[in-house]
Design a protein around this nucleic acid. Structure first.
Length: 874
RNA sequence: GCGGGAGUGGCGGAAUUGGCAGACGCGCUAGGUUGAGGGCCUAGUGAAGGCAACUUCAUGGGGGUUCAAAUCCCCCCUUCCGCACCA
């Protein structure tokens, strides 16, 4: 055995060995329970960052633990390989997106392998591969058949920088592109949509299956996004015109108080309502102004809302009164029916609008025990109360009134019960090249024709001209692609040139891993049913409502197509925190790279560029623009994969943000070296440790030093094992292992032949045996190496895991704190199985206790077994 | 505005069916080893007071429940995240 811990050699050796023995290749074994461990697959940007290292280190620890515990573990890896960066690289550097992507995949795969993650590489997929995307196209055709996919012309979010349409989920803070951060604009365009709204109810209800297994806030975010609300549609007939306006309300009980109506400016009805040419022009101008108003400004609270009267009236169907129809941009065209009934007395927005334009306010709900006055009231009364001025419903509670009025309008045929959602259909058309072509042909004679299944995949052409200045989708300029024959009539036709949102690719990849080379089917249903659901899914919180909602939707679609039984794709979800580092900023030169910062050693820093003082900012997510990134490669070079992996698990629990720290990394490196050195220094004593278990009788139980190690070992196995089964707080698992190592260092190892040599030898051998197993999920290379050095012929990776004995883990005697009136005054060493009565007697006899009690009387002695004793005196 | 998370030494973080606050690591201090430095080893390290045994204070702030509160309840502050006229 080498005295030096030469991590590079060790890591290469074991990576090769795992690969040679195909240790991480999995199969559908019926003799073992299965465990599907999955981390969100990466976009092949070409370089791993610390966030990746952490994400995959978490999953790898779990996967390895499960494998050691006898599970049939699937832990696959692949590439979310379609997307804009590849196409942008093509434009900037004149490299084909496929070439660029493939080179990136190769580079990242190498990095992954250097980190020694336990992936089953035989299942690798890349979404840009025709054998993958043909099944995206197939899925699209199935959804078209079932009416889930459709084409329509609507207002869409257009990102000018990315030159494509975005789905609503991909627009952040109301108007910002999730990818590039630029403001999006509204455009009316044709596009393909998936009716995720058909599944809204199920997506919402099935949250119940995930509760307790998914982070609460992800469920809350999805719930808010789906935004279910219950109420009724009510029709208001127009005065002097045919037709009616349908509104959605959650408060049918306030219908008698509806004194005007408001339509969204985009509502096409608006133009038909104008009572004069002049009014028509005004409304058109108003709509145009709304369109140009920033979405944030238009919808922000606190800003008074502009309105415009149409000149037309509708009839309140319950009061029979004529009420004016207005237009205002606080009513959204995308929600409900794009029209509302306004009840200013009981809705704050309506109230403010009514005050501004002097519209009538009628009170129809009275709060318990007091009266409202429409003249003097300063805000709407939105709570429940007693119905007044409401015809036959007067006197009813407003709660009961909701049901009663709904039934009434249903009987009269002027409305019906209804549920609406905030969730909109998923717009999947993208006007860019590097994505899955939508398998549709536009024929002059036959219209839109789906490409027959046996003609899939519709391949992306290679001969692309990426000249950005030409604008539009480069795909539409490839005549050989666009021009085709109609599958029905054989006549000339043109291919659809929109490609699919890449979120479709990532909505079912976890199923494809179950059967990645199937050329006949998207996945074999039996294989899918064996592995799915993913038992543990791990990724960033940023996908809470994008990927994670889309994937749940597509999963349910696939289930309905007969490709699986499980209602949900991901049984448990862990959202890992970000990797952060403090930013260095110079007032003159902006964010600084580490090499441009001089550490003065006294907590202050100097800018190397201008010699001015540098402001050490707070810790923020590592990002290129803030220049606070660190390259995993540098750390692998200096400390090895085991160190960087273990640090990213040790520095914080997985769910929390992690502060990167170079000295923290060195601390972990030091710990690993300490293990190495201990084994090296005691290689004689530890020799052959791996070849056979330690018999209980070898210990003897008369030596205190051995017993302490023995007990600590079993306690630690228990702690670490339970951390894996519960919260995944690996930071505490690792620190527990550090405690054992510290204990081993502080135990004097006797000379061979000394009386206590045998029991100590056994205890130390057992401790090291356990350590190698427990640390294997975190630092697998070093542990395999030491295992091998100590006579192991099997692989630690294949287990079995270590077990503990509660009887050994139990303390014989414990130091029990004794409190007097809640303050610790003395500690007594007592036998662990002492009865409360014995303990109380001990305490009453104790000198120190007596000193504190002197002159007072003991009122009560509280004995908490195994914990403490509290003496209450007065 | 609504909803959710967080707030513990110089730093990252332990400890929550209420029961020894600060495990473990970083940093710092001292000693040892070394020609020096680094590395490694040992000890110390929440604050204040005291020669000391020890005492007092301390988990964002203020109240409360309890023999006992970082943990439970009420009010407030700070911060991060999500949603934001959704009818």
């Amino acid at each position: 055995m080498n005295e030096l811990y030469s991590f590079h050699d060790i890591e290469e050796r074991w990576q090769a060995e795992w690969e040679r023995q195909a240790v991480f290749q999995c199969h559908e074994r019926v003799d073992r329970p299965k465990f599907y461990c999955l981390e969100m697959f990466p976009y092949p940007s070409g370089k791993l960052h610390m966030g990746h290292v952490r994400n995959y280190a978490i999953g790898d620890a779990i996967a390895r633990f499960k494998l050691m515990n006898g599970y049939s573990v699937m832990h696959p890896m692949g590439w979310d390989a379609f997307g804009l960066p590849a196409e942008n690289a093509a434009i900037e550097r004149n490299v084909h997106p496929a070439t660029w992507t493939m080179a990136n995949i190769d580079a990242m795969r190498k990095q992954f392998k250097r980190l020694g993650y336990a992936f089953d590489w035989s299942r690798e997929v890349a979404t840009c591969h025709p054998e993958y995307y043909r099944w995206c196209q197939w899925l699209f055709l199935k959804m078209l058949e079932k009416g889930i996919a459709c084409r329509k012309r609507t207002e869409v979010n257009w990102c000018g920088t990315c030159r494509t349409v975005l789905a609503n989920e991909q627009v952040e803070s109301g108007n910002v592109c999730w990818r590039c951060g630029q403001t999006v604009e509204n455009r009316e365009m044709d596009g393909w949509f998936l009716k995720i709204t058909d599944y809204a109810e199920e997506l919402l209800n099935d949250h119940a299956l995930l509760e307790g297994h998914w982070p609460e806030r992800v469920l809350t975010m999805q719930k808010n996004w789906i935004g279910r609300s219950e109420g009724a549609y009510v029709d208001f007939p127009l005065v002097g015109k045919d037709g009616k306006i349908r509104v959605f309300t959650t408060r049918p009980d306030t219908l008698y108080g509806a004194t005007f109506m408001v339509l969204a400016p985009e509502n096409p009805l608006v133009m038909t309502l104008a009572d004069s040419e002049e009014r028509c022009a005004m409304l058109r101008a108003f709509a145009e102004k709304s369109r140009q108003t920033d979405v944030i400004e238009r919808t922000a609270t606190g800003i008074p809302k502009e309105g415009c009267f149409t000149g037309t009236y509708a009839v309140n169907p319950l009061t029979g009164e004529d009420i004016p129809i207005w237009v205002s941009d606080f009513v959204l065209w995308g929600y409900g029916t794009g029209a509302i009934m306004s009840v200013p007395a009981h809705d704050q927005r309506d109230f403010e609008f009514a005050r501004k334009y002097a519209l009538p306010i009628r009170i129809v709900i009275a709060p318990e025990g007091c009266d409202l006055d429409s003249e003097s009231m300063e805000s709407a009364f939105e709570a429940v109360g007693k119905m007044i001025n409401s015809g036959p419903f007067t006197g009813m509670s407003s709660d009961a009134g909701i049901g009663a009025i709904t039934r009434y309008i249903e009987e009269k045929g002027i409305g019906c019960r209804a549920v609406t959602y905030r969730l909109r259909d998923w717009g999947i058309s993208r006007q860019r090249y590097w994505g899955t072509p939508i398998p549709i042909v536009h024929c002059e004679r036959c219209g839109m024709v789906p490409v027959p299944e046996d003609q899939l995949p519709v391949r992306l052409p290679d001969n692309i001209d990426f000249d950005w200045s030409l604008g539009g989708n480069p795909l539409s300029r490839v005549e050989s692609f666009v021009s085709t024959r109609c599958p029905i009539c054989g006549g000339p036709a043109r291919r659809e040139t929109d490609t699919m949102d890449t979120f479709i690719d990532s909505s079912w990849y976890y199923s494809r891993y179950c059967d990645p080379r199937n050329t006949r089917e998207i996945v074999d249903p039996d294989k899918n049913n064996y592995w799915i659901p993913v038992d543990q899914y791990i990724g960033g919180i940023e996908h809470a409502v994008m990927h994670l909602l889309y994937a749940r939707f597509i999963h349910k679609v696939m289930r309905d197509l007969g490709y699986g039984r499980s209602p949900e794709p991901f049984a448990r979800l862990l959202t890992q925190g970000m990797v952060c580092l403090e930013v260095m900023r110079c007032p003159r030169d902006g964010y600084l790279y580490p090499e441009d910062v001089i550490d003065n050693g006294d907590g202050s820093y100097t800018c190397r560029i201008c010699n001015g003082p540098v402001i050490a900012g707070r810790s923020e997510k590592m990002s290129k623009s803030k220049r606070n990134t660190r390259d995993p490669n540098d750390y692998i070079d200096r400390f090895g994969a085991d160190t960087i992996r273990m640090f990213s698990l040790f520095a914080a629990p997985p769910q929390k943000d992690l502060d990167w720290s170079d000295s923290g990394v060195e601390g972990v490196f030091r710990f690993l070296k300490r293990i190495w050195r201990f084994v090296f220094d005691h290689r004689g004593l530890l020799e052959g440790l791996a070849s056979g278990p330690i018999a209980a009788e070898d210990f003897g139980n008369d030596h205190a030093g051995a017993e302490v190690i023995h007990r600590k070992t079993h306690q630690t196995i228990k702690r670490v094992t339970e951390d894996f089964d519960g919260r995944y707080h690996f930071n505490t698992s690792i620190s527990a292992c550090m405690e054992i190592v510290n204990l081993l260092y502080s135990t004097p190892i006797p000379e061979e032949g000394a009386a206590d040599y045998q029991p100590i030898r056994c205890a130390v051998r057992e401790a090291v045996y356990a350590l190698l197993h427990m640390l294997n999920p975190f630092a697998p290379h070093m542990m395999e190496e030491l295992w091998h050095e100590l006579g192991g012929t099997s692989l630690l990776a294949q287990g079995p895991w270590v077990t503990w004995d509660d009887a050994i883990a139990a303390e014989q005697s414990i130091e029990m704190p004794v409190q007097i009136n809640g303050k610790i005054r003395v500690r007594l060493t007592v036998s662990a199985d002492a009865t409360p009565e014995e303990l109380e007697t001990r305490v009453r006899q104790d000198e120190t206790v007596a000193r504190w009690v002197e002159g007072k009387t003991i009122r009560q002695v509280i004995v908490v077994p195994q914990r403490l004793i509290n003496v209450v005196i007065k």
